[in-house]
């Protein structure tokens, strides 16, 4: 399942930009429009674009099945453990890292951390779902 050379080159060029955009949405989610879920979807789209243009078998060699599974589980566990860590400071999901000037990057406390966790979780989960469906499609 390989597409033409033009499509392959274009997707190779676009994918890194999508990852950069996704990272921006993750980190600035608390200051500007965006946030974890959107960032995660864009992260997944960058890989899904590569799958559609290069085929599953090629992409699987770079982004391995077990790596995606690992990222998904670890980011999910990270979210819960970060929320649980707040119990030490006063409550579940308590924002214990408050600081910095209002409007600066670090003023969000744990919220950017949550955005990163959610983004990785959503991105890995979407990719994982595609992998499982494609594995079933390309079995025969």
């Amino acid at each position: 399942m390989k597409m033409s050379l033009i499509v392959r080159t274009t997707t190779k060029l676009i994918s890194p930009f999508l990852v950069a955009y996704s990272a921006y949405l993750m980190l600035y989610g608390h200051l500007s429009p965006g946030g974890g879920f959107q960032a995660g979807v864009i992260l997944a789209v960058s890989i899904i674009l590569l799958i559609t243009s290069h085929g599953y078998n090629r992409v699987r060699k770079t982004f391995k099945f077990w790596e995606v599974q690992l990222i998904e589980g670890i980011s999910g566990g990270f979210l819960v453990l970060l929320a649980t860590a707040g119990v030490v400071f006063g409550g579940f999901f308590y924002n214990f890292l408050r600081g910095g000037e209002l409007g600066s990057l670090i003023s969000g406390g744990i919220i950017p951390l949550f955005n990163i966790g959610v983004a990785l979780k959503v991105g890995a989960a979407f990719t994982f779902m595609f992998y499982i469906l494609l594995r079933w499609v390309e079995r025969d």
Binding site: W66, E67, Q69, L70, E72, I74, L81
Partner: peptide, 13 residues
């Protein structure tokens, strides 16, 4: 919930 996420990464490891 944390145990569910941690269990799900065991096959990858």
């Amino acid at each position: 919930l944390a145990a569910a996420f941690l269990t799900s990464i065991l096959p990858a490891l």
